[in-house]
């Protein structure tokens, strides 16, 4: 194991989980939230010719998913470097 200490290993895993939870909340809100649970409320707002809730369900959630995965990859790269466990 490449960590300096046991506590570093714990801290790394904790930060990883924290980031994951934050991003999974966003994942849930754009799809299950905006696309399903609150769709009626959002449909009262227009985005061009789209009702907003409908847009989230058929377009917006997918765009956010793409951003989420790349953001996660970038943040994890930073975290790996911070703890000296990047695989270069």
């Amino acid at each position: 194991m490449a960590f300096q200490s046991e506590s570093d290993a714990k801290a790394y895993w904790k930060e990883n989980l924290g980031l994951m939870v934050k991003l999974m909340v966003v994942w849930f809100v754009v799809s299950f939230g905006c696309g399903i649970l609150f769709v009626d409320a959002l449909n009262t707002i227009q985005l061009g010719g789209y009702k907003l809730g409908f847009w989230f369900a058929q377009q917006g959630s997918i765009y956010v998913f793409v951003v989420l995965t790349f953001y996660y990859a970038k943040k994890m790269g930073d975290l790996d470097r911070k703890y000296g466990v990047d695989d270069e």
């Binding site: 994951m20 991003l23 999974m24 994942w27 799809s31 696309g35 399903i36 769709v39 409908f54 369900a57 058929q58 959630s61 997918i62 998913f65 989420l68 995965t69 996660y72 990859a73 994890m76």
Partner: peptide, 29 residues
């Protein structure tokens, strides 16, 4: 399917893409 289901067809769109977020963060690495 979406053409005949309209908004209801969104389950396929979100379901078959949202799984990749789970895959990218929770499983693949």
């Amino acid at each position: 399917l979406i053409a005949f289901m309209g908004y209801g067809g969104s389950v396929f769109l979100m379901g078959w893409t949202g799984g990749y977020v789970i895959l990218a963060m929770l499983l693949a690495p």
